[in-house]
Design a protein around this nucleic acid. Structure first.
Lengths: 221, 221
DNA sequence: TTATTAATTAAACATTTAATTAATTAATTG
DNA sequence: CAATTAATTAATTAAATGTTTAATTAATAA
């Protein structure tokens, strides 16, 4: 205790610690808390405790609680885009393609539907605009275009409203994971990795049957 | 000011005021705030201000903030059941019936999808159980039974999983109102009273085309 | 080596919140 | 009428929160 060179507590700059690691740990802890509880119900102190650092670090690295949340959102978007990376290459995007890659996305990012609905429904201002804009630039235009092409080609019913049709497709793919707790309790369906494939197949078939022209040439996938 | 019989402020029991009215006003204010913002972001002071009473009334009548929230949930359930009242009578419930009465329910209770998803996704413990239980007792069993009957009768495809099929139907009817802000911005569809009917028709037709046997006798509603 | 900068903690600060209490007034009851 | 009960408000309390600050230590530059 009398040694003058000895650290008194845990104060001061720690020896040989990567400062990027603290940032990453805080983002991890923020994701863990913010995705399962509402913004105001999550305290900086709790996040910092999970990350194993002092609460003041949130202000030091992110400028405050809101800044940390924004950084987390940005990080989630990056993960999302990484998951959808190869989807950007090919310009043709069929409904089956969409259904399949959406399932893959879900397997890699199970937090996505929950996050999506929270932001679209309950966030205010810029955050909501940001996520809507992401969606608008990633999925919507190419799917709309694809649906419209199928209608023009005579594969889909002529009386379909493309917007409503896309909405139905999105609903069938996103909603089950939104209502997951209810689905598992009421319908006795567990939405794990294996059943996700079954769900995707069911959705695709039902959707295609629903939109294709009622002529004899049905869709046998 | 010297008059001894004069009320000093607004203190004390007010003259000729209906105490049921205070309760109702607080419930109205709670609904207004809780349905548009998260629980922790709503203060009882603000609710009381909206209701035009003192904040202590929340504790007096409902035993606290949580109690007020629970009372509001119970009140919402009652409104929901009132809206679905006549649906309980007839035992046969077709898909078209469901779609139509769900649209009517939405017109009378526009808060419903928002509330539904908030509770199923973000609430904890008893509240979630309560709403899941309500749903289980109102919609699910009769619709499942109806779908199963159609499959047995040979009207719907034999390879359909009834649970997944009900899930698709629910998704198409509930999701558009969940993602309302996104729908209106991206798909340029306004979900007002008139378009709700169009959506219901679209959903019913797409769903029925999707589930019915692919034979020549399609569903012309 | 010395001075400066970067990173970290503990403590203090200012604000906000739900809940409680005491005072006050009207209604009700005996 | 008197005493009690019900309903309401203002003031207070205790806890929690986001942010700031000062102290402290390691890394880095001069």
């Amino acid at each position: 205790m009398t040694a003058t060179t000895r650290k008194r507590n845990n104060l001061g700059r720690p020896a040989g610690k990567d400062s990027e690691r603290v940032r990453a740990d805080l983002l991890d802890a923020a994701r863990e808390h913010f995705l399962s509880r509402e913004f105001k119900a999550v305290s900086i102190r709790r996040i910092a405790e999970t990350a194993g650092v002092n609460g003041a670090m949130v202000n030091y690295y992110f400028g405050g609680k809101q800044g940390l949340y924004m950084a987390m959102v940005e990080d989630l978007f990056q993960r999302l885009e990484a998951s959808l990376g190869e989807l950007d290459r090919d310009s043709e995007l069929t409904v089956a393609d969409f259904s399949r890659s959406y399932c893959k996305l879900l397997a890699e990012n199970p937090w996505w539907p929950n996050f999506f609905v929270r932001e679209v429904l309950f966030s205010e201002g810029e955050t909501r605009e940001a996520i809507i804009d992401k969606f608008r630039s990633v999925f919507a235009p190419r799917l709309l275009q694809s649906i419209q092409a199928e209608i023009s080609a005579g594969h889909f019913r002529q009386d379909l409203n493309p917007g409503l049709t896309l909405l139905s497709l999105m609903a069938m793919t996103i909603f089950p994971f939104l209502a997951k707790p209810m689905v598992e309790q009421i319908l006795q369906l567990s939405l794990d990795e294996t059943t996700v494939g079954v769900l995707a197949a069911h959705n695709t078939k039902l959707f295609l049957h629903g939109v294709e022209v009622a002529a004899g040439a049905g869709a046998q996938s």
